[in-house]
Computed example of a mutant assay.
Amino acid sequence: MAFRTADSFDGGMSDKDRQFVEALARGLAVLESLSRAQKPLTNGDLAEMTGLAPSTVSRLTHTLVVMGYVRLSRSNRAYELTPKNLTLGYPVLAGMRLLEQARPHLEQLSRTTGETAALAIRDKLHITFVAVFEGSNLVAVRLATGGRLRIPVSAAGIALVAALPETERRMLSTRVRAEMTRTGQDPETFNSAVKDCLRDGVAIVRNMWNPGIGGVSVPIHSQGEYAALTIPVATGSISEQTMRTTLADALKGVAKLLGPALHTD
């Protein structure tokens, strides 16, 4: 491909694949870039993020505007997603039985701890929060439903890797390490975190996504679905000891109600 889509493809695609519709892939690359941004993006921003030619991006954004998936922001200089995109995501969430089972437990967990509680699933080399209940503590970390983080910087990402059967875990870990190496990061931190989660049944991350933010997460496997229960924390207020004891125990308690806390080889 002539364009970059980060982790948009799981592999196996090539320029010689006659079944692969490149125009569709380009359009989806634009939508994925907009979904990851925290602000409207110009055609120039999108061209840089996807590696597509500016003229191609201009045609794609025009088409997406006409179809109602993208609109110009108030400044009329940048593009943002419209609520129409939710029609693509709601059927997916509605089909997740684990999500409906987890909601009341996550709400209670948030009330009990005062921290934000969330359920995350894997999206290629990222994790996506599919349910979020904000904590009442003044320093509780705020998350957004639909928000995404890269696997190696999130406790939920580490937990989701650890939850997989060994063969799948090795394959995914190889991809994560390759991406970390490509971007100049040390894969050893990821390796250690996964090993610790396999040993302890809980993933602990501090200051890897952003300074001052960490997370504690427990993996679960229920009814064929892999997910992670997670609590993000302000590391300046919540000690690692509290994460490993009070918060980890609370998460494990919920995990036992939903399914096995961790796959064992």
Results as ranks from 00 to 15, higher is better:
Thr61Ser: 00
Gly44Ile: 10
Ala102Leu: 10
Arg74Gly: 13
Asp15Glu: 09
Ile204Leu: 15
Arg175Met: 13
Glu32Asp: 05
Ala255Val: 07
Arg175Gly: 04
Phe20Pro: 00
Thr246Glu: 04
Asp196Phe: 07
Lys124Gly: 00
Thr128Asp: 01
Gly146Glu: 05
Tyr79Gly: 04
Ser173Glu: 13
Gly51Glu: 05
Asp186Gly: 02
Pro165Val: 00
Pro219Cys: 09
Phe129Cys: 00
Tyr69Thr: 11
Leu24Pro: 01
Leu164Pro: 09
Arg169Gln: 15
Lys256Thr: 03
Met171Trp: 04
Leu46Arg: 01
Arg142Ile: 09
Arg150Ser: 05
Leu60Met: 03
Ala156Met: 05
Val176Ser: 02
Val202Leu: 08
His126Ile: 04
Glu188Ile: 08
Cys197Val: 07
Ala227Cys: 10
Lys124Val: 06
Ala102Asn: 11
Met96Thr: 02
Arg244Gln: 15
Arg111Glu: 15
Leu251Ser: 08
Thr235His: 12
Gly89Asp: 05
Val202Arg: 04
Glu115His: 15
Gln108Met: 13
Pro91Gly: 00
Gly214Ile: 08
Leu172Ile: 13
Arg97Lys: 13
Gln185Pro: 00
Ser73Trp: 09
Ala227Lys: 04
Leu251Cys: 09
Leu149Val: 06
Arg150Trp: 02
Glu168Gln: 15
Gly51Trp: 03
Ala227Ser: 10
Gln241His: 03
Asp123Ser: 15
Val218Trp: 12
Arg74Ile: 06
Tyr226Glu: 04
Glu100Ile: 08
Ala23Arg: 14
Lys124Asp: 05
Ser110Asn: 14
Val161Trp: 02
Glu168Leu: 14
Leu34His: 12
Tyr79Ile: 02
Leu229Ala: 11
Ala255Met: 09
Pro104Gly: 08
Asp17Met: 06
Arg36Cys: 11
Ser33Asp: 03
Asp45Trp: 01
Thr246Pro: 02
Thr264Trp: 02
Lys252Asp: 06
Asp196Arg: 12
Leu258Glu: 02
Pro232Gln: 12
Leu93Thr: 09
